[in-house]
Structure formats: structure tokens, C-alpha cells
């Protein structure tokens, strides 16, 4: 945050006016970009400029702008959420780009993620998977005291490491097969590591993996791209764990 040198950037942005439109790249020049702006603030400013010129602004989604809601996300220069490790687009700042650079921006692409407009995609397929068992069936009113069942700290911490998934879809966008394996396994592993999740573990893994296929996601072929692009650093060991859960369920005759 020393001296502020502003930058001049060329932005090649994917524009698509609805799911039926073919879409194309459009080029915008933006001057006086402050390195302290976030990437989305840079787009806000470009949009205000476009509106003033009477042009349609670039449609993109975001909400919390602190990397936790999972709303934002697109591909920057070929990388989901950009090149910075463990960072969502909203947390990526312009200081990580160079003066004069051309930046290519396009939506997350996957069969299960139709483009709705420009950079906005439909990710509802992810919720359709989670609804098939990504929960523990306990009613309000019937829970025992929270300290009744001790959970080893290590397990609880590990469970958190998978529960931290923000559901942004970057893992799917990064995968050459558009597989949702990391996303689905994160939920399976989170609940499998906690004693509270055990009563339904066989049914859960079976149903969720079936739902994943039904929703049009591909299979996992261990490219590790998902782990690299995950803004929360979720480990691919979750996929191994989910496979283990799957075979465990099979062996138990589920």
C-alpha cells in the first residue's frame, strides 16, 4: 500500500444474452485502475461507466464480498476465481495484475451449469444433490445436551475442514470432466466424521452419489484440478473418503 500507480487494462469479457444466445467476447479498455480495488469493484466501476454511456452493464453475481457466501465466481485467464491460491473472485485484488495486461473473463463452464446471462450461471444442480441426504434427520426439540457425546477434537477439526465448502462451483468448473466429486465428498466426509452423522451414512452416500450422476456431472479421474482451485482449500482426500464410505455402504448391503 505504498505509492499508488494506476494501471491500464484490456478486458475481454464473455457476453451472452440468455441461455439460447450463442455468446461472444467483447473487449473493454479500462484506465486508472487502482491496485487497491478488488476485481469486482473494478467491474462495478466499468459497469457504472457503461450505464452512463447507455450500454448494458456486464451481468455478474456477488453478495458478501468477503469470500464466504459462494455467490461470485467466474474464470479469469483460464483459472476459476483467478490465479491467486485459495481466493474467491471478490477477494482478489487488482494489485495482483500488471499494467497493460489483457484479462480474459468468462463464466464457469459445465453441462450442469447453464449460462443465464453473461457471467451468471445456474448452479441449482448443486442443491439438488445436497437435498438427497446432505443432512442429519434430527427434529428441533429432540436434541440431547450438546456435551453428551464427546467428539475427538481432531475429528471435529477435520469435519470443519470439509464443512467449510462455500458451494461456489469452482471445483466443477476446473474439472475437465465437470465432476462434482469434491463438492459432494466434502459434505459426505463432514457428516461421516461426526458421530451424529453415522445413523444415515450408508443411505447418504448412496443417494448423493446417485444424485450427482442424475444432475449431469461427470466422474472423477483424479486430475486434482478441483483441489487446486478450491478457494477454501478442501482436500481431495475427501473424495477418497467418500469412496471409502461408498464401499463401506456396499459391503453392509446398502
Amino acid at each position: 500500500m505504498s505509492e499508488k500507480k494506476t494501471m491500464r487494462l484490456t478486458l475481454k469479457v464473455w457476453r451472452q444474452n440468455g441461455p439460447q444466445d450463442q455468446g461472444r467476447f467483447e473487449t473493454y479498455e479500462l484506465d486508472n485502475v487502482n491496485p487497491d480495488w478488488s476485481f469486482l469493484e473494478m467491474l462495478d466501476i466499468l459497469n457504472m461507466k457503461l450505464v452512463r454511456e447507455g450500454k448494458e452493464p456486464i451481468a455478474f453475481e456477488s453478495d458478501c464480498r468477503e469470500g464466504i457466501c459462494g455467490t461470485c465466481g467466474f474464470v479469469i485467464n483460464g483459472r476459476a476465481h483467478g490465479h491467486l491460491h485459495k481466493t474467491t473472485v471478490c477477494q482478489l485484488h487488482m494489485r495482483h495484475f500488471k499494467d497493460g495486461e489483457t484479462i480474459v473473463i468468462e463464466p464457469f463452464r459445465a453441462t450442469a451449469f447453464p449460462v443465464l446471462k453473461d457471467l451468471i450461471i445456474d448452479r441449482s444442480a448443486m442443491d439438488f444433490i445436497l437435498k438427497r441426504g446432505g443432512y442429519i434427520s434430527v427434529n428441533v426439540g429432540s436434541a440431547p445436551d450438546a456435551n453428551t457425546i464427546p467428539v475427538p477434537k481432531h475429528n471435529s477439526d477435520r469435519a470443519f475442514d470439509f464443512a467449510t465448502c462455500i458451494g461456489c462451483g469452482a471445483c466443477i468448473a476446473a474439472c475437465p470432466n465437470a465432476s462434482a466429486a469434491l463438492f459432494v465428498s466434502a459434505k459426505i466426509t463432514h457428516l461421516a466424521l461426526l458421530p451424529q452423522g453415522h445413523p444415515e451414512r450408508e443411505k447418504r452416500v448412496d443417494e448423493m452419489l446417485t444424485a450427482m450422476e442424475e444432475q449431469g456431472f461427470g466422474g472423477c479421474s483424479n486430475t486434482y484440478a478441483c483441489e487446486v482451485e478450491c478457494p477454501k482449500g478442501i482436500s481431495i482426500t475427501g473424495i477418497a473418503r467418500a469412496n471409502l464410505e461408498y464401499w463401506r455402504a456396499k459391503l453392509k448391503g446398502n
Binding site: 426439540g141 450438546a146 464427546p150
Partner: peptide
């Protein structure tokens, strides 16, 4: 609220003894 949240799998911070 804490009882219920634990029961549905919220991974709260725990001590080494396994309690919250």
C-alpha cells in the same frame, strides 16, 4: 440452540477432551 446445532452436525470448536 447449541444442543440442536450439534445434533445436526455443526462442527463447533472443541477441547482435547472432546467437549465444546
Amino acid at each position: 440452540i447449541i444442543d440442536y446445532s450439534v445434533a445436526i452436525g455443526v462442527p463447533f470448536a472443541r477441547e482435547y477432551g472432546g467437549l465444546l
